[in-house]
């Protein structure tokens, strides 16, 4: 029973990442009708924003420390990060320690900007083109972004630890069960849930969101009412990019960022989107968590010994079963992307 509950928690964290990326993909597809193969790259860029933040805070100057001597008796030169020099050990140390969560503040404007540039510079010209063209051009863009990141940060994964207080495991007593679970994964789940809730609230309770939803349903009529729907859709692209970026930022302590992490997540996210139903936001979120939890269950040793290899293929197996029994995915609408 303990193990079962633990696997649900495991699945929630992974499902959170799938859900966030899949939601961004669905937002872009639902508003602009574009299949964005570069979305995984946005996730990856988000992760590297966290790496950049860490590097900025660790930017050091060398000072001669008179109290320490090396083995020859000369005064030792030590590297001291600028932030510690400026703000002292307390606040400076806090900044360095908390560089991953603080990177969120940097990631939102950066990712919005990346999204705007991408949409205005490239994607705009591909609204009316066939999906095959959209896939090819965004796939090309994803490769280019990957290579740029690889040039600046190298090919090896870069460890980006969580704040030291949140690195270990937490002991929980839920329903009389004693569980120990990595803190950061729990935080990641709550974070993804909060972001998902914020996006839904934005679409549901603001006038802007209402217009966007109306535009998703019937773009032309909204245009006839004198609303510049293109501009709002561009902003939605920025928001989708920011959501992917945030998912990447917070995922860095779980998986050290490397330049091809985006591609690894992209394929699974597409499976998630399609299982959830093309164009359905709640479908994408539900499918993300569902597949995450199922994958966690399948990696249990008891299950693996029962059906060997199931942990490798469970997501695809579930996707096949769902697509064959529910033609348009879990919550998909009729007639979207079926031709």
């Amino acid at each position: 029973m303990d193990a079962l509950f633990l696997q649900i928690l495991n699945g929630l964290e992974k499902g959170g990442a799938y859900a966030l990326i899949a939601m961004g993909l669905t937002l872009i597809f639902g508003t602009l009708g574009v299949v964005n193969f570069a979305h995984g790259a946005l996730f990856m860029i988000g992760a590297f924003v966290a790496v950049t933040m860490q590097r900025i805070f660790n930017f050091s100057l060398e000072i001669v420390d008179a109290t320490q001597k090396d083995f020859l008796g000369n005064p030792l030169k030590v590297k001291v990060p600028y932030v510690i020099e400026w703000f002292g050990d307390g606040f400076g140390g806090f900044l360095i320690d908390w560089s991953v969560p603080l990177a969120i503040l940097l990631a939102i404007p950066v990712m919005m900007l990346v999204g705007f540039v991408m949409e205005r510079g490239l994607i705009k010209h591909f609204y009316k083109r066939p999906h095959a063209d959209q896939i090819l051009v965004t796939f090309g863009l994803a490769i280019v972004l990957q290579e740029i990141v690889k040039y600046f940060f190298g090919a090896n994964p870069i460890p980006t630890p969580a704040p030291s207080d949140y690195r270990g495991t937490i002991e929980m007593a839920i329903f009389g069960l004693n569980l120990s679970y990595p803190v950061w994964r729990l935080i990641y789940f709550f974070f993804s849930a909060a972001v998902i809730a914020a996006v839904f609230a934005f679409l549901q309770f603001t006038t802007f969101g209402m217009v966007v939803r109306a535009g998703m349903a019937d773009r032309e009529t909204v245009g006839l009412l004198g609303i510049d729907i293109d501009r709002r859709f561009t902003l939605m692209f920025g928001i989708a990019a920011a959501v992917a970026g945030l998912a990447g930022v917070m995922y860095t302590p779980i998986l050290s960022p490397n330049y091809h992490m985006g591609m690894d997540f992209l394929v699974l996210s597409f499976v998630v989107v399609v299982v959830g139903g093309m164009g359905s936001l709640s479908g994408a979120v539900a499918a993300g968590f569902l597949l995450g939890i199922l994958q966690a269950f399948a990696s249990m040793n008891e299950v693996k010994s029962l059906i060997p290899g199931i942990d490798q293929i469970i997501i695809y197996l579930v996707a096949i079963v769902i697509l064959l029994t529910r033609p348009r995915g879990l919550l998909g609408r009729k007639g979207v992307m079926e031709d």
């Binding site: 299949v35 999906h131 394929v267 597409f270 499976v271 399609v274 299982v275 093309m278 290899g309 490798q312 293929i313 695809y316 197996l317 996707a319 096949i320 697509l323 064959l324 033609p327 348009r328 995915g329 992307m337 079926e338 031709d339």
Partner: peptide
């Protein structure tokens, strides 16, 4: 049995399953 992107994802799923198995 499915068309469009659903067909693409089904074939992708079969291929990834073969690869992982």
């Amino acid at each position: 049995r499915r068309s469009g992107i659903y067909f693409s994802i089904l074939t992708l799923a079969f291929a990834e399953m073969s690869y992982r198995l």
